[in-house]
Computed example of a mutant assay.
Amino acid sequence: MLNDFDAVLTRMIELLRFGGEDDWAVALEKIKKGFDSDPRFKSSQLLSMYGGMGSLNDIVLYRGGQPLVAENNEFDELRIQLYELCRAQA
Rank of each mutant, 00 (worst) to 15 (best):
I31P: 01
I80T: 13
Q45L: 15
E77K: 11
L56N: 01
G20E: 12
L16M: 10
M49R: 09
D6P: 00
G64Q: 02
L46Y: 05
R79K: 15
K32N: 14
Q66E: 14
G54I: 07
G65Y: 05
P67N: 13
D38F: 03
L15G: 02
V26M: 08
D36G: 00
D58C: 12
D38W: 00
Q89G: 00
N72F: 06
Q45P: 00
G54R: 09
R40T: 10
D36I: 12
M49L: 15
R79G: 05
R17H: 03
E71I: 08
L15E: 04
S43A: 15
I13W: 01
V60K: 12
N73R: 11
P67I: 14
A25R: 09
Y83A: 12
M49Q: 11
D38Y: 05
G52T: 00
N3W: 05
R87N: 09
L82K: 08
N57Q: 06
M1T: 10
A25P: 04
L16G: 07
K30V: 09
E74T: 15
S37T: 08
I31M: 12
L15F: 10
G34P: 01
L46M: 13
D36H: 10
F18T: 14
M1V: 11
A90N: 14
I80M: 07
E77P: 00
A7E: 15
Y50R: 05
I13D: 05
R40Q: 09
F41D: 13
C86W: 01
S55A: 05
D4E: 13
C86G: 07
K30H: 09
L15C: 10
R87Q: 14
I31Y: 03
V26N: 07
D76T: 13
I59Y: 01
E74I: 05
G52I: 06
D4N: 08
S44V: 07
E84Q: 11
L9I: 14
L16C: 04
M1W: 03
D58T: 14
S55H: 06
L2G: 15
L56G: 02
D38P: 01
L47W: 03
L68R: 04
E21D: 01
R79I: 08
V26G: 00
N72W: 04
F5Q: 03
N3M: 09
E77W: 03
G19M: 06
M12Y: 04
G52P: 06
Y83E: 14
A7I: 08
A25Q: 13
Q81M: 14
E14A: 09
L61D: 04
V69E: 14
S48F: 09
R63M: 04
R40H: 06
F5H: 03
C86P: 08
Q45C: 13
R40S: 10
L46V: 12
L16Q: 05
D6C: 04
A88L: 12
A90W: 04
L15P: 07
G51M: 05
M53V: 11
L15T: 08
